[in-house]
Write a protein that binds this DNA or RNA. Structure first.
Lengths: 109, 109
DNA sequence: TACCACTAGATAGTATCGCAGAATAGCGAC
DNA sequence: GTCGCTATTCTGCGATACTATCTAGTGGTA
C-alpha cells in the first residue's frame, strides 16, 4: 500500500477499531482479520494488539475472556459508555477533516 | 483541539498543504494563516515550516524567494510535476480511507 | 526606544504505526 | 507422547510526524 497510508492511519486506526467494536464485541485476532478483509491488507497484528491495550487502559472497552477451540483464550473487547462517547468525538473530528479535505479537492480542479 | 485531531493530522496535513499549493504558489506564513482561517486553529507554525522543508527535500515543490514589505524575504513554494503526482496518490489513499470509514459509520447505527 | 506584525527556523518531547519474533494453548498425526 | 500446525496474544525497537517553545531577523509605529 502507499506509504502515505501508514501515516494516515495514525489517529484513524483507533477510531476504526472503536467503530468495529461499536457494531459488536470482538477479539484482537478477529479484528485484525476483519481489517484485512476490508482492504487494510498491511496492518500488522502487533499494531492492533498495541492499540487494544491502549484503549483498554484508557477505559474505553470492557474485557472478558472466552475459550478458543485452538489456541490461547480470546480476549473479547466490548465498547462501553466512555468508549462510545470517545467514538462520537472521533466522528466529529473526522467529519471536520473530511469536509475540509473535500472542499480542498474541489478547489484544486 | 481534540487530541484526536493531532494524531489524525499526521499524514493528512501533508496532503492538505500540497492541495493548497495545487491551487497556487504560497509561502509558509501565508499557508499557516490560511489553515487557521479554515478552522485548523491550533496548527503551530513550526509544524508547517518543518513540513515544507520535508516536501522540498523530496522534490515535490519548487522554491523561489520573494521580498516582503515587512519582514524577511518569503520563500514561495509552488507544486511541480512530481508533487502533483504525489498529491494524486494522496487523494487515492484518502478516498479509500474515507470510503471505509463512511461504511463503518453507517454500519454502526 | 520599545513594541508589534511578519517571516523563517531549530530543538526536544510524545504518540502511533510497522516489523520481527517470542510465548501460549489446543488438536491431530505418527 | 512428542512433533508440528493453527490460533491467539504480547513485546521491544525503530521510523515518522505533530506540538510546544524558543530564537532570530526586518520594518513600521507609538
Amino acid at each position: 500500500m502507499a506509504k502515505q497510508m501508514t501515516e494516515m492511519l495514525k489517529g484513524t486506526l483507533e477510531g476504526i477499531v472503536l467503530a468495529i467494536l461499536a457494531v459488536g464485541p470482538a477479539y484482537g485476532y478477529e479484528i485484525t482479520a476483519r481489517l484485512r478483509e476490508q482492504g487494510f491488507a498491511d496492518i500488522v497484528e502487533g499494531t492492533v494488539y498495541a492499540l487494544l491495550v491502549r484503549i483498554e487502559q484508557r477505559g474505553f472497552v470492557d474485557v472478558t475472556k472466552a475459550p478458543s477451540e485452538k489456541g490461547p483464550p480470546r480476549k473479547v473487547y466490548s465498547l462501553n459508555a466512555a468508549g462510545a462517547e470517545y467514538l462520537n468525538e472521533f466522528w466529529k473530528s473526522w467529519s471536520f477533516l473530511a469536509e475540509r479535505l473535500e472542499a480542498l479537492r474541489l478547489e484544486g480542479k
